[in-house]
Design a protein around this nucleic acid. Sequence first.
DNA 1: TACCCTTTGAAGTAA
DNA 2: TTACTTCAAAGGGTA
Length: 262
Amino acid sequence: MSSGNYAAPLHKLELITPIVPHVAQTTNYLTIVMKKAPYDKNAPRRPLSAFMLFMKKRRQESEYIASQSFSDRNRIIATEWAALSAEEKQVYTDQAAEDRELYKKLFAEYKTTDNYKKWLASNETVNANGPKAGCKRPVKQISHTKNNDIEADCKISIFTHEFLEYNRLREVILRQLKKHVSQLEEETALLSKHVENLVNAENRTKNQINTTKELLTNEENLLKQLCKELTVALSDNESQISPQIENLADRIQLIGLGGQKS
DNA sequence: TACCCTTTGAAGTAA
DNA sequence: TTACTTCAAAGGGTA
């Protein structure tokens, strides 16, 4: 296993009360859910998945990745991971499976310790008042309609834990909304640029169509003129036909050159 | 000082 | 079994 000493994340909220609401982002909406009991900090650390092992390795070996921002770094590695072949991924998958087996063994051993029993006991105390550990299903969903928000605001006493927590939640939601807004603004800017390019392309195409129409009209007029002259030439006496045909040939050549030039 | 951000995959749990 | 949340890692930014 690639894990060291475990420092379980101890959320600030848990210092206030074991069961407090927090914001969880689901696929397309924000939901307020009840938080589980504190994580068992004495339990063995979870093993790294294949992707996590790959991520760790790439962060260590690539200077380019290391120079990126935190978010971009992970996005780049995720893209690289998606591009890996099954054989390349297998190396990490095998290592992860090995770590998993070791974790299961360590966890089975841990279950026989007093620490685990203590944690179970404390967990049962929590369960008496709320959901069991590990249960993050939405127990309570807070509606975000304007009226309900106002009502909820009015029911919370000022400067209580509930009040502070409520404010903190609102700030989290606000931060996420601001981020979403900035993303939408970026998308809008890109789309506007795209529309502008399309309009320009349309104008260019219209101009080309008009120019081509003009050329076609000229060519048609010249062709008509040529037919007329040919008719006149053929109706003249035989001695004059030959020089006139030569003359026409010259004219056709000129027309052709004129068409190429334009 | 602790959480947030971000990613994928697996553990863990309720229904 | 399904559906869902949390936690693993990283380190700078933020409250």
